[in-house]
C-alpha cells in the first residue's frame, strides 16, 4: 500500500504536471472572484473562507478526475487488481495521494491568496491547518470513490463534479464557516458543532469509501 502511494508521489514529482496546473487554476479562480464580486478589503472578513474553498473545490474536481487515469493508460489497473493488495487498501493509497496533492496545492495557494485578498493567515495558524486538512480529506475521499465511476462514463470529466458536488455540500458548508472563523482568530473549541460535523464527514467518507470501493472496481 505504501509502495502504491510512493509510486504515485514519485510519478507526480517527476512529471510535475498536476500541481502547477492546479496552482494556476486556483489563482484564476481568485482573480475571477475579485472581478466578479468587486470585493473591497473590508469584505474579507465575510467572504474569504468561501472564495478559498471554491478555488479548492474546482481544483480538487480536476485533480481527482485524474486519479485513475495513469492506471488506465497502460491498463495498470489490472496489475493493481491482481496484486495481493485488497481493494480497500488501493482506495486508502489513492486517497492518501490525492490528499497530499491537494494539501500541497493549498500550501501554494494560501500565500498567494493572503497576498491578493489581504487576508492574514496568522490569526490562528494551527486551527487553520486543522480545518484545511479536515476539509481536504473529505473532498479527496468522496472524489476518489467516484473518480473511477466517472471515468467509466461517456462524458468522463463532466460527470465527476456532477456526482461529488452534491455529496460535498455539507462538508463545504462547515469547512467554509470554520475557515472563516479561524481566519478571524477563533479557536478550534469555538467551532463547536462545525468541527464535529467536519470530523464526522471525514470519518464517514473515508470508511464509506473504503467499504464501497471494491464495488466500483471490475472483478
Amino acid at each position: 500500500m505504501l509502495a502504491l502511494l510512493w509510486k504515485d508521489i514519485v510519478l507526480e514529482a517527476r512529471s510535475r504536471e498536476t500541481l502547477p496546473a492546479l496552482f494556476v487554476l486556483g489563482l484564476l479562480v481568485l482573480v475571477v472572484f475579485d472581478f466578479s464580486l468587486a470585493l473591497r478589503p473590508e469584505d474579507a472578513g465575510r467572504f474569504a473562507g468561501g472564495i478559498l474553498w471554491v478555488a479548492i473545490v474546482f481544483a480538487s474536481v480536476l485533480a481527482l478526475g485524474r486519479t485513475f487515469l495513469v492506471e488506465r493508460e497502460n491498463s495498470c489497473i489490472e496489475g493493481l487488481l491482481t496484486s495481493p493488495l485488497d481493494r480497500g487498501s488501493i482506495f486508502l493509497a489513492k486517497l492518501a495521494v490525492n490528499t497530499i496533492l491537494l494539501l500541497a496545492f493549498e500550501l501554494l495557494l494560501l500565500p498567494a491568496y493572503s497576498l491578493l485578498y489581504g487576508v492574514t493567515l496568522t490569526a490562528n495558524p494551527g486551527g487553520l491547518a486543522v480545518v484545511m486538512v479536515g476539509g481536504t480529506i473529505g473532498l479527496a475521499a468522496t472524489g476518489t470513490l467516484f473518480a473511477l465511476a466517472a471515468l467509466g462514463t461517456r462524458a468522463r470529466e463532466m460527470v465527476l463534479p456532477l456526482l461529488v458536488l452534491p455529496l460535498q455540500i455539507p462538508l463545504l458548508i462547515v469547512a467554509v464557516q470554520s475557515t472563516q472563523m479561524v481566519l478571524n482568530g477563533a479557536g478550534l473549541a469555538a467551532l463547536g458543532m462545525r468541527g464535529e460535523l467536519l470530523l464526522g464527514f471525514d470519518v464517514l467518507a473515508v470508511t464509506g469509501g473504503w467499504l464501497l470501493f471494491e464495488f466500483v472496481l471490475v472483478d
Binding site: 468522496t142 470513490l145 467516484f146 465511476a149 467509466g152 462514463t153 461517456r154 462524458a155 463532466m158 460527470v159 456526482l163 452534491p166 455529496l167 455540500i169 455539507p170 462538508l171 458548508i173 462547515v174 458543532m193 460535523l197 464526522g200 464527514f201 464517514l204 464509506g208 464501497l212 464495488f215 466500483v216 471490475v218
Partner: peptide, 30 residues
Amino acid sequence: FAQGNEMAPRYAAVLAIVGAVNVPLVMMAT
C-alpha cells in the same frame, strides 16, 4: 452517461447509498 457500461449499475448503487447516508449530514450542516 454510463449506459452500456456493465459497471453502471454498481456505480449507481454506490452513489444511491452514499447519497442516502449523506442526507442527515446535509440536514445538520444546514
